[in-house]
Design a protein around this nucleic acid. Structure first.
Lengths: 200, 200
DNA sequence: CCGTTTCGATACGGACCCGTCTCGTATCGA
DNA sequence: TCGATACGAGACGGGTCCGTATCGAAACGG
């Protein structure tokens, strides 16, 4: 099996604190309203109180650094209890609301969305790291509901998923100044479940 | 009343063709995947085949130029027939779908969304020019439906509006690679109207 | 024809950034 | 103690961009 015992290389080891300091600085700058294009490696190093070479020693360029910034956002998603469909949906959508409320996350979402075109793999990483897992959870919840006959199965599950997350995302991305008040999640979930039409 | 007969100023008049050529160039570049931060006045002038001074003679800076680019997108919104609530909703949402399909519009939406933080008035202009009118139309349709007792009035009309536009926007902005197929509008409208829950 | 302004082109100084490299110092294993 | 590497700081050449200024040519009114 050629097990390599991970021989510590000679010399002074790299400081893990520096890694996190750099990534944290990028997050702070994005949070403060900077767009990705405005972040220069030079400025990142300066604001992190770090030599430029120290940054380039770790990442070959801005794109690679940003990928690690994305990865640092990974966070365990919610685990729906699986008891009530309605409660599971609330759990998932409420998670989105809380994430969007964190300035950090929505700032980065906007930063990434604004650069989808130029850096496709950046979006891919964000998608895989931040979005995909949650969406899978939601799809699972919906499929369970379909199998139990609690929700209609005559529509694409992806479409139904968008019905639940779309409103919250639209508010977060498009009307970011608008509030995402407590209780919004429940209102969205219940209204989508019950429908808007009156049985008149 | 001191009516000034708009005396033509002396000298060579400005070419209107140059105005549109510059704005069109910006749109073309955005459409081609450039983000706002990557558009330099220098590059815009170069690609438009125009002297830099010619650009600065018209706009004091990039922000002002972008504002006029936004304004050039103004387009009469749909006029719902007012006969059927369902058809009116389809009209409004379908208009969003068609706009999002036009690469030009969604590229600019992303470009603007990505720079909300740094240029708030840019977003304001986009909001007023492109979004506001359509949303008013939608809110009017919904209020009509409420008065007629066709849809529930126990929820905020703004929330209900987001239920209809959110899914389409989420697809356009977040999953821009995903298709917005013909018929998607009707499926969204009908499903939101009827609800997702089965009357089991 | 003449004064005025716009046109494309381009030069200018100043600013920032890129990625590499070199300092002197610090921190590790041997 | 010694070799190796990382550290902050910053110099370096080469690039782009900013906003202004200056060309000669062109397009207008008088």
């Amino acid at each position: 099996m050629n097990i390599v015992p991970a021989p510590r290389p000679p010399g002074r080891p790299r400081s893990a604190a520096v890694d996190t300091a750099i990534i944290e600085t990028v997050l702070r700058l994005l949070e403060g309203g900077a767009s990705m294009g405005e972040l220069s490696m030079e400025r990142i190093a300066r604001e992190a109180g770090v030599g430029k070479a120290t940054v380039y020693r770790r990442w070959p360029g801005k794109e690679a650094l940003m990928l690690d910034v994305m990865r640092s956002l990974d966070e365990p998603g919610p685990a729906p209890a699986g008891v009530s469909l309605r409660d599971d949906l609330v759990t998932v959508v409420e998670f989105i609301r809380r994430r969007a409320l964190a300035k950090r996350n929505s700032a980065i979402l906007r930063a990434v969305v604004g650069h989808v075109q130029d850096h496709p793999d950046l979006w891919q990483e964000y998608h895989d790291t931040v979005i995909q897992g949650r969406r899978e959870t939601l799809l699972t919840v919906l499929r369970q509901g379909m199998e139990r006959g609690e929700i209609r199965a005559d529509q694409d599950v992806e479409l139904i998923a968008d019905l639940f997350v779309g409103p919250m995302l639209a508010r977060a991305v498009l009307h970011e100044w608008r509030e995402l008040p407590e209780g919004l999640t429940e209102r969205i979930v219940d209204t989508v479940l019950e429908g808007v039409r009156l049985p008149g």
